[in-house]
Design a protein around this nucleic acid. Structure first.
Lengths: 193, 193
DNA sequence: TCGGATAGTTACAGACCGGTAACACCCTAG
DNA sequence: CTAGGGTGTTACCGGTCTGTAACTATCCGA
């Protein structure tokens, strides 16, 4: 086949990347380890040499997915160095772009919906990663000079989360198209106080 | 056993009720038809005599779940006859109560996350039922005399949806506790315009 | 009392699931 | 050249899944 990728990238990374993509598109319970390894150009034994179970693979995928999301914050700082308010607006527009282009929701939220066992190893990881997400947004709001930074950050968080779900229930032409208007309205409303 | 319920309620209704409850708690893909029929005090053959497939059962559960949600709107009208603004506030508090007591999200949203096949029979039903939900809230906002009724209704919808997801990712002590403050702030902000 | 509809029981088909065993292979470091 | 770690292959285990077949038991209305 001369895949190019198959040759140079190590199997573990191919599996992690492929699993992330397939979990995202088809859901965690909708994808079996056989399908993952086949799509990654490898086999089940190799997967189980690098991950002790499917649950462990799920956890690593969630961490990788969250890390990608966190990396975007570097772009905001690079594009608007020091201007925290501009970075907040950049976040709003980045969210809108995501809503318009990605028909599936947040990997962590989706995983929380699918993995209902209260003691599932992924649940504590999801809580940890979601907490970190929230903390970043709170810090950005505070540094942007907004009074009730926590309340604004939480409101924007829930709005974002809801919009990502709405895309899945009502399509990308539904209420989520109004996200920018809602978010900008909230920001200016909080700044006015 | 002398269940009481098992004797008087017909198997079809017992299956529908039990399936709703189990899908809600454990997710759709987390529950098999065998488990449903056993919990409903019946058997698989009887299920397949009343529902042509699990997918069909899922659709009927979603419709039943949505109908229960819609029934609550009657209470709002009964408690505050004619006072649409009071009914809107009643909706807000009802949502907050749901967030505090139900650790799982909206059945339709959860189903949309789990059933990723674009042509799954439940997807169009979810869209239809979610659209009806939205329309009711828009009508309530408009009848309450709010100018940008659609925008407020959509904002409240997304906030609600996001809060229900947040309960699943961060627990009921997370950002969702602020829902009432957020919603009331939005309503008074829209009324001021 | 009888007949038909409804419901329960057992067994099974065929597919898929996560996970493992045993063995052959190949590439690279020494 | 060689030894060994990483990888690929095949086959398999026990379990679960949706869905069906064939038969039996029960209840209700005429």
């Amino acid at each position: 086949m001369a895949d190019g990728i198959t040759d140079r990238v190590r199997p573990r990374d191919r599996i992690l990347e492929t699993a992330q993509d397939m979990f995202h598109k088809h859901g965690i319970k909708g994808v079996g380890v056989d399908a993952i390894t086949e799509a990654a150009g490898t086999n089940k034994m190799t997967l189980y040499r690098h991950f002790e179970s499917k649950d462990e693979l799920i956890v690593q995928c969630l961490r990788a997915s969250a890390a990608k999301g966190a990396a975007i914050w570097g772009e905001f700082e690079a594009e608007h160095p020091g201007d925290k308010l501009a970075q907040l607006h950049a976040w709003v527009h980045k969210v809108a772009e995501t809503l318009a282009t990605d028909g599936r929701g947040c990997d962590m939220a989706n995983a929380a919906v699918e993995l209902t066992e209260l003691d599932h190893p992924a649940r504590s990881v999801i809580k940890e990663l979601k907490g970190a997400q929230r903390d970043r947004l709170v810090a950005l709001c505070r540094d942007a000079g907004i009074g009730q930074a926590e309340l604004l950050a939480d409101t924007l968080s829930l709005l974002f989360e809801g919009a990502r779900v709405s895309v899945q229930t009502m399509g990308c032409q539904g209420p989520s198209t109004q996200f920018v208007r809602m978010a900008e309205g909230l920001i200016s409303s909080f700044r006015a106080r």
